[in-house]
Design a protein around this nucleic acid. Structure first.
Length: 269
DNA sequence: ATGCTAACCTGCGCGC
DNA sequence: TGCGCGCAGGTTAGCA
């Protein structure tokens, strides 16, 4: 479910309610997520939250004694709820604050809740991540340099978190369409000029999606339970056999790296 | 080093 | 109605 814009929307939504608050309790109903939730997570109880940040699709809730590292996987979402609200079927974790709680819901359980002491940037899951697509370090130079000699499809290349973080399946197809590049083109055989265009369209789609509050396909809601509105802006994703918005030719679908990829064979080359 | 595959799970929509 | 199938927004581990 959540790509970078959805995680960013969530992060912005929960931050004002969390920073400065003391964690009163952590209730784990289902510890079996992507990795088991460690017992040490209870160390966070009694600590004060100092910041709520995003790195790629990871949410980092920093406290005075360590950091809660969360990932929403494919189907996770966070809600701010009142302590009286009964937990639902897939409400696996509650982080209790003063007067409210942060509740993790994740039907497929591909998400993660981990605890890390020491500098969070040293966490093994974050250590090898590529640059943030909306920050300076990400540009055509970066893509061009790392693509050298790579025979992998460019779509898989930009979805690789070690290259650049936060480009998920929806936005990868969208960015490639806007850049006029076929998703199955080999990464190492794309010109620097085209990477210039691609780095631009990646930033563009992500920024627009954040401005719209994320994309709601089935069930994404922000921390207030509101849906995102980017779905109506999607030009190719999920539009197989429909007319291309630019040339009216039928949109095609091809599985690349186990993921459905949508493109226009006329507008992209 | 690179790149592909399986794996982790549940829910939903579709065709029969 | 019910059942089986295929598919879904992510990412890592493991192997060639």
């Amino acid at each position: 479910m959540p790509e970078l814009p959805e995680v960013e929307t969530t992060c912005r939504g929960i931050r004002p309610r969390l920073v400065g608050q003391v964690i009163n309790s952590i209730v784990v109903r289902q510890p079996q997520l992507r990795w088991p939730i460690p017992r040490e997570i209870q160390t966070a109880v009694g600590q004060t939250i100092s910041s709520v940040e995003r790195r790629g699709k990871y949410l980092l809730i920093a406290t005075t004694g360590g950091t809660i590292l969360m990932h929403l996987g494919m189907s996770g979402s966070l809600r701010l709820a009142s302590p009286e609200q009964e937990p639902g079927k897939h409400d696996h974790v509650d982080i209790g604050l003063e007067g409210c709680l942060l509740r993790l819901n994740d039907p497929r359980r591909f998400g993660a809740v981990l605890w890390h002491t020491g500098p969070i940037e040293d966490h093994p899951l974050l250590l090898k991540l590529g640059p943030e697509p909306l920050e300076e370090a990400f540009d055509e130079q970066h893509l061009w340099r790392l693509s050298k000699g790579r025979r992998q499809a460019v779509k898989a290349f930009i979805m690789n978190g070690h290259i650049v973080v936060g480009v998920g399946n929806i936005y990868a197809s969208e960015a490639l369409f806007r850049a006029g590049i076929l998703p199955h083109r080999q990464a190492g055989r794309i010109s620097k000029n085209r990477y210039q265009r691609l780095s631009q369209t990646i930033r563009e789609v992500l920024q627009e999606a954040i401005a719209q509050g994320g994309t709601t396909l089935q069930d994404f809601t922000n921390s207030d339970g509101q849906p995102g509105y980017f779905a109506q802006e999607l030009l190719v994703y999920g539009r197989e056999n429909q007319a291309c918005v630019s040339c009216t030719k039928a949109i095609k679908m091809k599985v690349i790296g186990q993921r459905a990829s949508y493109y226009c064979s006329n507008c992209q080359s």
